[in-house]
Design a protein around this nucleic acid. Structure first.
Lengths: 344, 344
DNA sequence: TTGTAAGCGTTATCAC
DNA sequence: GTGATAACGCTTACAA
């Protein structure tokens, strides 16, 4: 059942069918109804490929979840972290009549294949999350002029990036808040479990920690920084080391909740009580954070809001063609739970 | 940069370029190399729409997450439950060179739009999860002959469904195991918080509960059945009612973990200790289950395995064209944690 | 207002 | 082996 058939049955030409389908102004109500009746009757829908071939528009946006881990447990993809982001992107895109093609990238070399997806014309734009800062394959995509929105990223070479926009959480501010919160609670020796410093959020969070210390007149000590990778296991390892410091720091600021939870587990194993013996603050406020014991004090990131911004902005970019290169910074908020103790 | 350009530069015809791209046998190594060189040099990739137009194949499968709730908190999509399923589908599909178009359906009437996605030729096949049993819109899709795999569903009218396959967890067996486990632990008065009985899993789980009771010679009592909808809130409400029964049942089998956790919260509020005062078993083994206190004893469903089966089966169906209508039942396993107490 | 015809970028058929 | 040529199903000038 294609437009030719519909045209024949309705007694008009293919062009007229097309005009009706596309809601052209210059078709009289009478013919419109006549054609619509046949369209409804035969459940005619224009073929997507034929349409995008001529319109040069696929009406779909690509969602690229980059989830690379040092050691990959093959077959186990537990990136529940991206779940609210993904769900929101799909929802907002669908609302604006866009389809979403989702990809998971588990190794950086797979990112090269992503470029071809754009070249094939399979997507009109892309949304990226989880990319390490300055990633070469991504820069290539930007340089070829494809429209993309990136979460947790910093675009270099701004003049070439007329079609790239960026959405970040206020990582620096959040880390500052978290650390300051610990300081206000009387903590003076605060360790930091840093995240993956190849990611913008990793860098910004350690910076916020540092600034809070400095502004409070506390010394930033290298031996209190533990380099993780945002995974729980690295938080666990860091905590094992922290437990061996004497005197032990009274508090830990972890760059995300997963590492905070890994650390909690390690402390628990060693008989170190939270928050009695050590306080801990995380970042992200993932679903689990409120379920662990004690419930984790953390910095809430509004991933769904970031998804909304990314999607709406990129759709605007496609639809309007404007090269209004945005950089959004989404506010975060400290959520106090029970993993921090006030000293003295 | 299209095939015409490549052809011109390489000094051959479009047909030859096509033959090279598609790895046809009858092109000599020399021309192949000559053409490939140009293709590489100009990063030529065939246009997806043009290709699927003529091949009548989009090389993408649709993933439809049906997530309808009675009362929808607008804008908040917390379906972390589907996350491992989604991630696995995408991964397995990508491995077999398929793309995945994902949709979330939050209201049943939106399901009608899904049919058009098939008609548009946007997807070669679809995978559905979360549909209520016998859903009309889905039956329509099946009847029009589209290739689909459904999770948690029962296909009626088997002769018309040559292209539909089904993947289910062993819900009945799992519920039987869970209930029997409680019985073996000395429980005789076991309440059941049923799930959404419009879903196959809801029905099968209550059936397994019933069979376990019967085989143990225990009476199935209507007043011990509480009708929920798989959401935490309904579990919470059920527990509030259970707490008022006297004598209170010594155990509860909830048809999923969310309801079990809702129930735990309610019991906690009422000062009812788990497992001291009441034992509880859930179903699914979602990530949270091991983090709540006490850690929840539950029945593990291998969603990623079901995703793998669904994806591989549907890809086979597309590629081979065979109408080998499968019905898989994926085994489940009881995971003992700390929410059940042995009586006496 | 409507129809004819060209074109979107491929692949498939058929000669040569 | 390779190159015309005709589809694939649609939109869009252009003509009428």
């Amino acid at each position: 059942m294609d437009s030719t058939d519909i045209a024949k049955i309705a007694g008009v030409s293919r062009s007229t069918v097309s005009r009706v389908i596309n809601n052209y102004a210059n078709v009289p109500e009478q013919t419109r109804e006549k054609v619509m009746k046949v369209i409804k009757e035969y459940n005619y829908v224009p073929h997507a490929s034929a349409r995008s071939l001529v319109k040069k528009k696929s009406q779909t946006i690509g969602l690229f979840i980059i989830d690379v881990h040092e050691k990959m447990h093959p077959g186990i993809y537990n990136n529940t972290y991206f779940s609210p982001f993904t769900a929101s992107v799909i929802d907002y895109a669908n609302r604006k009549n866009y389809f979403v093609l989702t990809f998971s990238v588990y190794r950086y070399d797979e990112l090269r294949k992503v470029l071809d997806i754009f070249r094939e014309g399979r997507v009109d734009a892309g949304i990226f999350i989880g990319v390490k800062n300055g990633e070469e394959s991504l820069q290539k995509i930007i340089n070829e002029g494809y429209k993309i929105a990136i979460v947790d990223y910093e675009i270099t070479g701004i003049e070439t990036a007329k079609n790239a926009l960026v959405i970040n959480a206020d990582n620096e501010g959040g880390a500052y808040k978290a650390t300051t919160y610990l300081i206000k609670n009387g903590h003076k020796s605060i360790a930091h479990i840093a995240g993956d410093l190849k990611k913008l959020s990793g860098i910004q969070r350690i910076n916020g920690y540092r600034r809070a210390l400095q502004e409070a007149g506390l010394e930033y000590k290298d031996e209190l920084i533990f380099y993780g990778d945002f995974d729980a296991e690295s938080g666990y390892k860091a905590a094992k080391e922290i437990a061996n410091i004497s005197p032990m720091p009274t508090a830990v600021f972890a760059a995300n909740d997963s590492m905070a939870m890994g650390a909690m587990e390690a402390f628990k194993e060693d008989g170190i009580k939270i928050p009695d013996d050590i306080s801990i603050v995380g970042f992200d406020d993932i679903e689990l954070a409120s379920y662990v014991h004690p419930p984790l004090t953390t910095v809430r990131v509004f991933l769904h809001k970031m998804a909304m911004l990314a999607t709406n902005r990129i759709v605007d970019l496609i639809d309007s063609g404007t090269t209004n290169c945005h950089h959004d910074i989404v506010a975060v908020e400290l959520v106090e739970r029970a993993s921090v103790r006030a000293l003295r």
